[in-house]
Design a binder for these strands. Structure first.
Lengths: 198, 198
DNA sequence: ACGCTACGATACTGTATCGTAGCGTAACAT
DNA sequence: ATGTTACGCTACGATACAGTATCGTAGCGT
């Protein structure tokens, strides 16, 4: 009785989910790859269908519009970083920035982010995604900075947001604006200046 | 004799040039406006024709392709800034950054630049334009910094490029990444840190 | 064995775009 | 007056794309 009543409920069997998940995964993987290559503007559903081998009709069975798929693919791009704990503020910050400096020239998301920033300039949905990505990038820094404030290594009236901008800004600037290389020496100079006790 | 020989040369009369210039100006103005609204990706020749009142055929008589027109319109976006001379490094830098901080939320080019950055990521022609815009932004800073080095206000082995990144980076970061407001206090804090004598 | 569900293939509508061609016309020079 | 030049207009052809409709089929549970 209980089992039969369960059947009538919308409980898709595990295997059906597997089938669905296979399609969804193939689509999303290809979508992500396509995004990395051409950005948001040149993204097309037809191309996803061609590359993934999944029929376009199937794509539209899972996502109502092209935009929904793009947004979903963008969301998979949020880089999650661990928060180090070396004991000292400078040690933590150095660990975080060195990793970012290493990722900036190589990681996929660094090719797509300008496209998202551009789209976000005029589209609130992308502004929301961009905001999430942004918070993800800054979170570890905010945490180690806040810890430093709490234990007195930084003055209590330090504005954490300002320091984050002073740390991330120059790195991003070199990646997307001046296009200069980002070497260890540069990162260290930025850290010294951002954390300088005035 | 001299005048008649001049005629055979490709010396279009002034009035003809006026006619041509009127068309070119109307097209470029509209193109620039369209770029500001939608970025490079959504730019279309048909729309320029519709808005400017100039026939599409005429547009193609002056620019061979859509891309050539976009590039031409982008080139008009290079913001030229004057280099101040207040006598002190901090005064000069403050003058420059305050103006940029004021322009960032308002100027047209701040809406288009992400689009150019994105396009430059994959298109060498736009990378070149982006590079020119970038140098234009940094030039006044480079100059006042170099002057400060020359007169000994900054140590001789200061890396000017690093300081420029430490100054412009945080401002750009707030405009296009964290989207936080850029107030005078923030600018001053960034300047103090960037110019700190370590 | 039977039925449900997701899937594939194909075709289609409708639109937006690039870039070109043909033809007539207004501005301008001489 | 006559020719030249730039322009406007309309209409193309070609392509790409979003999104839908139809029909047949393969996987999977029961």
């Amino acid at each position: 009785m209980v089992t039969s009543s369960k059947k009538s409920e919308p409980v898709p069997s595990a295997n059906l989910n597997r089938r669905v998940e296979r399609s969804r995964h193939a689509i999303l993987t290809t979508a992500f790859e396509l995004l990395s290559e051409g950005g948001v503007a040149s993204f097309s559903v037809d191309e996803v269908a061609r590359r993934s081998g999944v029929a376009k009709t199937t794509i539209y069975r899972h996502w109502p519009t092209r935009e929904a798929l793009v947004i979903d693919a963008c969301s998979r791009m949020i880089a999650e970083q661990e928060t180090p704990d070396t004991g000292s503020l400078e040690g933590d910050v150095t660990a975080i920035l060195m990793e970012i400096a290493h990722l900036l020239p190589t990681a996929n998301w660094s090719y797509v982010l300008p496209s998202i920033v551009d789209t976000a300039e005029r589209n609130p949905e992308f502004a929301e995604i961009h905001s999430r990505i942004q918070r993800g990038h800054a979170a570890p820094l905010r945490e180690v900075l806040q810890r430093a404030v709490d234990r007195g290594e930084l003055s209590a009236h330090t504005d954490v947001s300002t320091i984050v901008a002073a740390l991330l800004g120059p790195l991003f600037y070199r990646r997307w604006f001046s296009r200069e290389p980002i070497d260890d020496q540069f990162v260290k100079a930025i850290i010294k200046r951002a954390l300088a006790s005035l």
